[in-house]
Design a protein around this nucleic acid. Structure first.
Lengths: 230, 230
DNA sequence: CATATAAATTGTCTTATTGACAATTAATAA
DNA sequence: TTATTAATTGTCAATAAGACAATTTATATG
C-alpha cells in the first residue's frame, strides 16, 4: 500500500449536536470532556474515526458510547477543517446533528453518563470551535425543519398540533399564529388524526395526531413538497 | 504531542465539482487521473489535505493546481467517509462545488491542463464514488439556486433575462414560462437594467442586466428572501 | 420602402396561498 | 349553570402563481 506515500495522515473526528425539546424549549446535549486537553470543560459529543468504520457509523458509535442512545435520526451537516481548531493536534471534524425526544432520552440517560441538557438560548463556553458547530447545526436544523418533516423526530409518536406549534416556535424562536399554522397542517394528508385526545393541557382537550411516513413518501414522490415556515 | 496517541490517522482529501454553463447546457469539469490507482480514468479534481492548510484552502489549491483557476465561488457541501471508497487506502473526502463562467474559464484553461467539460446529462464512468459526489453536488446546486442567487456566478457580469432563464432551465432540466419568470425577476430590485442591449440573439435585442450584490445584501437583511423556482 | 418575422417583453385573467384576526367549540372548575 | 380557557374553525383582503394572449422592436427580405 504505497500509492499515496507522500501524503500526510491526520486525525478525523466526528462531533454530534444533539437537539432535544421539552416544555417549549429547544435544548442541546453537552458533556464534560474526560480527556486532555481541556478535560472537564463543556464539549459536544465527539470521538475519533477508526480505520474500519464509516463516518456515519462513527457518529452513531460515539453517540452510543457517550449517552447510551441508539436509533436516533443522525444527519451529517458539514466538515470543519481549520488548521488550529484543536490545540493538541491537527484534526478535521465532521459534524452530525441529531433530533431526539427529550423525555424518552432522559429515561435512558442514566447517571452513568455525564451528559447534560442546556437551553440553546443559554449555551456555556465550549471547547475549540464547538460553538460555531452548534450555530451551523442550528441553521441547518431550521432549514430542514421548514423543508422536511424532521421536526416530528423531536416529538412523541402521538402529538397534538399545539405541541407541534410549540416545537416550531422553539426551533425558530418566534411565535406563530395558531389558526394559520393549523390551516397549513390540515392540507397534509399524511398527518392522521387519532380518535384520542390529550386532556393534560386544557379542558377541551386536543386531538392527537400521528405522522404517517409511508403516506408522506407517497405524497413526496408525487411532487408535493413540505413547507412549514414560522 | 501525545494527547490522542491511541487514535489512527488517515488520509483526508478534497474533491471539487466544477459546474459551468454554455449554450444552454450545464457542464461538469473532469480530469484524467495522473497517478495510481486508476491512472487515466475520469475523475473529479481532487487532492490530499496537507498538515498546514484548511479544508477551504486545500480545495482552492487543488483547483488552481489542476486547472489554473483562482477566485472561484467554492462551497463545501459534505464529507464522504465510506470505508472502502478509495480502493488503495482509507480516505475521507470532503466535497466542494464551484460555479464558473465557462467561456471565461475556457480561455484560462490552456492545454497544459488535462481538464475537459462534459454535459451533466452525459457523465462518463468516474473513479471511486465520484458519481455519487456529483449527484449530491447537483442536488445541492439546485437547492441553492432556488434559494440564493448563486446562479449568477455562472453568467457574465452583464447578462440578459433570456440567458438567465436558459441557465435555470439547464440547472433544473425543465422549461420555464418566460412571462412568469420575468415577472418574478421584475420584483428583485437588486437586478439593474443597463442601458445596453445584447443584439446577438434576436432582431429586437435583449436588455442587459446586472446583479447588484450590495443591494441584494440590503434586501436580504430586511427579510426579503430570494426564491426562483423552475 | 413596406412588411413579414421572431424574440423580447408586457399584460390579463383565474385560481391558490398568506396573514391578520374574528368567531365558535368543548370540556371543566367554580 | 355558567364562567373560563385552550382548541379549533372561519372570514376577508392582499398577494402570488400559472396559463396564455397581446404587444413591442428591430431587422431581413421582397
Amino acid at each position: 500500500m504505497k500509492a499515496y506515500d507522500q501524503q500526510s495522515r491526520l486525525l478525523v473526528a466526528v462531533d454530534c449536536i444533539i437537539f432535544g425539546f421539552k416544555e417549549g424549549k429547544l435544548n442541546l446535549l453537552l458533556i464534560r470532556r474526560d480527556f486532555e486537553p481541556r478535560r472537564g470543560e463543556w464539549s459536544l459529543m465527539g470521538g475519533f474515526l477508526k480505520e474500519d468504520e464509516s463516518l456515519d457509523d462513527a457518529a452513531a458509535r460515539v453517540l452510543k458510547e457517550l449517552t447510551g442512545l441508539t436509533e436516533v435520526y443522525l444527519e451529517q451537516f458539514r466538515a470543519f477543517g481549520e488548521v488550529n481548531r484543536d490545540e493538541a493536534e491537527r484534526t478535521v471534524s465532521v459534524g452530525y446533528y441529531a433530533l431526539v425526544e427529550q423525555p424518552v432520552v432522559d429515561k435512558q440517560l442514566s447517571r452513568d453518563y455525564a451528559a447534560h441538557w442546556v437551553s440553546v438560548d443559554d449555551i456555556p463556553p465550549l471547547v475549540f470551535d464547538h460553538r460555531e458547530m452548534v450555530a451551523a447545526a442550528l441553521r441547518r436544523l431550521r432549514h430542514r425543519a421548514t423543508h422536511e418533516p424532521v421536526g416530528f423526530e423531536l416529538l412523541p409518536e402521538k402529538f397534538t398540533i399545539t405541541q407541534l406549534q410549540a416545537l416550531y416556535e422553539g426551533i425558530f424562536g418566534t411565535s406563530i399564529d395558531a389558526g394559520n399554522f393549523r390551516r397549513r397542517l390540515r392540507k397534509m394528508d399524511y398527518l392522521e388524526r387519532l380518535a384520542e385526545k390529550d386532556t393534560s393541557g386544557s379542558r377541551k382537550g386536543a386531538w392527537y395526531y400521528q405522522f404517517k411516513s409511508e403516506r408522506y413518501a407517497a405524497a413526496k414522490s408525487e411532487g408535493s413538497d413540505f413547507l412549514l415556515k414560522p
